[in-house]
């Protein structure tokens, strides 16, 4: 098991390097560079013109004349060794100051959605498979398709509109105004949980629908396997044997989907939080991209991706723990 974990961690390294590389390309993509934006900002703020020589000096200092790969190295080594993600010119602050709080909330929301997805999809999937072609199965299948077809930002919009019309309030944000800036306390936590469920459901809907179908299909496959018959011939009761054998085995592909669902949920969280105006990564990433505040945007993309990859690793380890065939081979 330890060897398996070590191997998976080793395999993760090239992926992480690739992610940082792609992110840096994204950072570099917009025409012009960080300095142009910075100079423009200086000009706008101070009204003073920055002369060419000064720009060249800055350019030299930031290494903007270096070849791509050296620039990349400077950027990534600063992040890894010093935790320095560069500066956001729009917020005029180090990126790392803006980053962590929002990333943290993003992952709390994503993980809550993940929990919601699995808790809902598992029983419904099992029910749909065992009661195949029953009324309940059809109803869940229908809602499953609908859940897959409604983009989550649309769902968020609809919920907002309904809430505004019926209750007269917009259910945006993750905190009530009085707690937004307050330090963490029990009351704030409760307030947070009260706000959490709407984004959780919105973000999780599509994944829930997909996972119900995965669980149903896998379990249907397993229900006809000979080992089920063996257990039946042993005299085990239907309820216990279905949970102990086919459901247990159908759980493996279900859990292995974790690695796919987490990126999807983080994606979903990004766009939903823009609509719901949550204090997570989504809105700030969007504004950063719109104003081409590329170090800020790039850092968000980088950290979201890295954490997702780590999440996938955790799900793989969980799967190996569940399935001896993976653990031993």
């Amino acid at each position: 098991m330890l060897r398996y974990i070590a191997r998976r961690i080793l395999l993760m390294i090239p992926t992480l390097i690739l992610i940082s590389f792609v992110t840096f390309i994204v950072v570099q993509l917009p025409p012009g560079d960080y300095l142009n934006a910075y100079v423009a900002q200086l000009t706008a703020e101070g009204g003073e013109t920055v002369d060419r020589q000064q720009i060249e000096m800055l350019r030299e200092r930031y290494g903007l004349n270096d070849p791509f790969i050296i620039q990349y190295w400077k950027w990534i080594s600063n992040i890894i060794f010093e935790g320095d993600f560069g500066r956001s010119f729009e917020w005029n602050a180090p990126v790392s100051d803006l980053l962590w709080g929002r990333i943290g909330l993003t992952f709390v929301v994503s993980l809550a959605s993940l929990l919601f997805v699995y808790c809902v999809a598992f029983p419904i999937g099992v029910y749909s498979a065992i009661r195949k072609y029953s009324l309940g199965d059809y109803v869940f299948t229908f809602f499953g398709f609908l859940g897959l077809a409604v983009p989550n930002f649309l769902l968020a919009l609809v919920l907002m509109v309904i809430s505004l019309q019926v209750f007269g309030v917009t259910p945006g944000g993750l905190f009530s105004p009085e707690y937004a800036g307050a330090p963490w306390s029990f009351a704030k936590l409760m307030d947070f949980l009260a706000h959490l469920w709407i984004p959780m459901i919105i973000i999780g809907t599509a994944s829930t629908a997909a996972l119900i179908r995965v669980m149903r299909a896998n379990l249907l496959d397993e229900l006809n396997k000979p080992y089920v018959e063996t257990a039946r011939a042993k005299g085990q009761s239907e309820a216990v044997l279905i949970m102990r054998y086919p459901v247990r085995i159908a759980l493996n592909p279900f859990v292995s989907r974790l690695g796919w669902e987490l990126p999807a949920l983080v994606s979903g969280a990004a766009i939903t939080s823009i609509v719901l105006n949550l204090p997570t990564a989504g809105p700030i990433l969007l504004t950063a991209l719109q104003s081409q505040d590329m170090f800020l945007a790039g850092s968000f993309i980088l950290i979201l991706s890295v954490l997702t990859v780590i999440g996938t690793l955790v799900s793989d380890i969980l799967l190996a723990w569940l399935d001896p065939r993976i653990r031993y081979s």
Binding site: T15, V22, V26, P30, P31, P263, A270, L289, Q290, S305
Partner: peptide, 24 residues
Amino acid sequence: QRLIEFIRSIPTIPLWMGLAAAIP
């Protein structure tokens, strides 16, 4: 296969946003 796994493991919307925002 590694490339496919890599692409699947990153959250797509932030990446799309990054790429799309770069269109002049």
